[in-house]
C-alpha cells in the first residue's frame, strides 16, 4: 500500500511524539523552583488521565501513537511533553 521509511509504525504518527518530547525539554529548561518526587509522580499520573481524555489525533492507526481500538486511544504526545519537561528541568538542575 505505502512504503514506510523511518519506523515500522507510520512515521507521521511517531514524529509528533518526538517533537512534543523535544519541545518539552526546551521549555522544561525554563522551569525553576523545587518540585518534589511525589509532585512529579502526581503530575505524570494526571497527564496520563488527561491523555486518555484527549485521545490520539484522528487518522492515527499505530499502537505507538496511542491508537488502541476504534473508540479508545491515548494521546502519547501529551505524556511525552510532560515527561520531556521534567527531563529538561533535570538538565538545568532546577536553577533558581
Amino acid at each position: 500500500m505505502i512504503e514506510l521509511q523511518l519506523f515500522p509504525a507510520l512515521a507521521g504518527e511517531v514524529t509528533p511524539i518526538v517533537v512534543a518530547f523535544v519541545l518539552g525539554i526546551l521549555f522544561g529548561t525554563q522551569l525553576q523552583g523545587k518540585i518534589s518526587k511525589r509532585m512529579i509522580g502526581l503530575i505524570i499520573g494526571l497527564s496520563i488521565i488527561a491523555a486518555v481524555l484527549f485521545e490520539a489525533p484522528i487518522f492515527t492507526w499505530s499502537l505507538l501513537a496511542g491508537f488502541i481500538s476504534e473508540h479508545i486511544s491515548i494521546s502519547v504526545a501529551f505524556v511525552a511533553a510532560t515527561i520531556g519537561m521534567f527531563v529538561g528541568k533535570a538538565f538545568r538542575g532546577g536553577r533558581e
Binding site: 504526545a77 510532560t82 519537561m85
Partner: peptide, 22 residues
Amino acid sequence: GIPVIILIVAYSLLVLTGAATS
C-alpha cells in the same frame, strides 16, 4: 499552580503537534 502550569504547557505542545491532523 505548578501541576496546572506544567499540564497546560504539555497541552499546548499537544495542540502544536496535532496541527496537521486535528
